[in-house]
């Protein structure tokens, strides 16, 4: 963007006022443990001591308002409960369009995570699709969910609607 230069006698309609702020964000206690495991190619969940539900990543239980210990190993296989095919470009986007962005309930978890679904044509994406994590090689992994490149179809038969409808 360049500074608009109005002609003489023309009202000034726009001005450029760039703001640049840098933030250093702490992952926090729960995410530190979770992302540490991600680097090792493992997914950690936590069980709420009150309602017994399993959360990925672990966190304070949203419904009970109590802390949980994040020490439950979770499978890197799961089911696509619902999804969206993105065909709109936006600032900061790194994926090639169109891409499929899905809500995935990992086996053993009670809440979905959100990630890319790849290895399938966008038009073949569907609810109930069984997927698994496609991990980046250990040397390329960082403390971010991008250490999983995407989720890809396992080739198993689709899950029945009734088995995941409570996650919608």
């Amino acid at each position: 963007m360049s500074e608009p230069k109005p002609k003489q006698d023309e009202p000034i309609k726009r001005m450029l006022a760039p703001v640049r702020l840098e933030f250093t964000v702490s992952a926090g206690r729960d995410k530190t443990a979770f992302l540490g495991a991600i680097i090792e190619g493992r997914i950690l969940g936590g069980r709420c001591p009150s309602c017994r539900k399993v959360y990925v990543p672990p966190r304070g239980c949203p419904t009970c308002g109590v802390e949980m210990v994040g020490d439950i190993p979770i499978s890197d296989h799961g089911v696509v409960t619902t999804f969206c095919t993105v065909s709109i470009p936006f600032e900061g986007q790194t994926m090639k369009l169109p891409y499929v962005y899905a809500s995935i309930v990992l086996d053993g978890a009670d809440v979905p995570i959100f990630h890319l679904v790849d290895g399938i044509d966008a038009k073949d994406a569907r609810m109930g699709l069984r997927v698994r994590a496609d991990w980046r090689p250990p040397a390329e992994r960082k403390p971010t969910m991008e250490s999983i490149r995407a989720f890809v179809p396992t080739g198993e038969p689709d899950a029945a609607f009734d088995t995941y409808k409570e996650h919608l």
């Binding site: 969206c84 095919t85 986007q93 994926m95 990630h115």
Partner: peptide, 16 residues
């Protein structure tokens, strides 16, 4: 940090 920018705004959130 920690998560890739996948959502693509409110539409990406509500479409599923």
């Amino acid at each position: 940090p920690f998560q890739p920018p996948l959502m693509a705004g409110a539409g990406g959130y509500f479409a599923p």
